[in-house]
Simulated assay, not measured.
Amino acid sequence: MPIEAGGVARRSELLRQGLTVNEIDQARRHGELQRVRWGWYSLPGADPAVIRAVKAGTVLSCVSSLKRHDVWTRDSQHLHTRQTEYRQRHKRVRYRNDIKVCMAAERESRPCAGPVDSIRDALLTMLECRPGWELTAAMDSLLNRNRTTHSELWDLLGHRGGKAVKALSQMDERRESGSETRFQLALESEQISYQMQVRLLGYRVDTLIGRRLIVELDGWSAHGTRKAFENDRERDRRLAAAGFHVIRLTHQQTMEQLEAAMVDIRTLIRRREHLRRVPL
């Protein structure tokens, strides 16, 4: 059965891919296709999130679509969608139960051809929905994995106003996680100079402030194993013995408690702890 994008497709798409009306009806009778709503069908075992979006008269978009495309996004308690082109001409709905219907950048977003927005359209919707740093983090993720270029992103968003231009100007393909993006943009907002992805004693550290203040950003996926735990403590010990001051921030601390961490970092900087010479 020629269905992709989460196992859900429009009837018109099935016809375009070569199925006949009789074949679609027969597949429904045999349980090979299930009707999600008028004009939309799913395979058994289709992605429940995609089905929920389509049942609500929307398509998966914004951070929910980007996550499905394996792009970094911040976790959200809502399923993010946007309305189909028919519903965009009628009354807007912002929330349906646990579904957030995002306000798409209407002049740029395309009709919803499938149940899951492309990366392009998801970024346009994200621009209207999420904070600028999250947009920068998503673009950093794409750049880091060589899935787009700076020029392509500027062509897409560069004419969309100040928020988009600021997010674009802060992109850096060296960042490997949203935690790095969020923390380093916080440093930039306070005009704190730093270096990223620096090699010290054979280790690559996430962020170096001044000569000796190291800030490591620990996501659970990369640091949650026993081996990673042991390796991290060994490198911290060796770096401390060499004269560096190491701080570790978890993903949760970076996302939800960043200001508290910044208070401590500003305190160390005021004491000029970051400027002491390291006797390498």
Rank of each mutant, 00 (worst) to 15 (best):
V116L: 07
A242G: 02
R37D: 11
N144M: 06
Q17P: 06
E180I: 04
T225G: 11
L280Y: 12
R11F: 12
A186E: 00
T267Q: 14
A261S: 15
R35S: 13
L60G: 02
R110S: 09
G158C: 04
H223N: 10
E13V: 12
A105N: 08
M171E: 03
T207Y: 03
M262W: 01
A104I: 00
F244Q: 05
R82S: 15
A113D: 14
G161H: 02
W38S: 15
W38D: 15
V165P: 00
N97G: 12
I209D: 02
G202N: 12
V50L: 05
P131D: 07
N97F: 08
N22A: 14
A113L: 14
G161I: 01
R35K: 15
S118Y: 11
A241R: 10
D75R: 13
W72H: 12
R74Y: 11
I51D: 01
R211D: 09
W220Y: 13
S177A: 12
M262H: 05
V263R: 15
H80K: 00
L79A: 06
R271F: 15
A261F: 00
I209T: 03
Q26Y: 14
S65M: 07
E176Y: 10
N146L: 09
R204W: 14
R110H: 13
R16V: 07
L142C: 05
D121A: 03
R68G: 03
R107D: 15
G6E: 00
N97Q: 14
A122E: 07
K166S: 08
H80A: 09
D75M: 12
T254V: 15
L201E: 09
L208C: 08
A53T: 04
V8W: 09
G243D: 07
I214V: 04
V198W: 10
S65W: 08
L143Y: 03
T73S: 06
D206A: 06
S61Y: 04
M255L: 15
Q195F: 05
V36E: 01
T250W: 09
E85L: 11
T84D: 13
E134T: 02
V71D: 02
A261E: 11
D218Q: 11
S118F: 08
Y95S: 00
I209H: 03
G132C: 03
G18A: 01
R175P: 01
R130M: 09
L185Y: 00
A53P: 10
L168V: 04
T148Y: 07
G243V: 06
D140H: 08
Q253N: 14
T181Q: 01
D98M: 04
S169M: 05
R11Q: 13
R94H: 06
L187M: 03
G224S: 07
R238M: 14
V8I: 06
I99F: 02
W220L: 12
R11D: 13
S61F: 05
W40I: 02
R29W: 09
L43W: 05
A56Q: 02
L268C: 10
F229D: 12
A164L: 01
T181R: 01
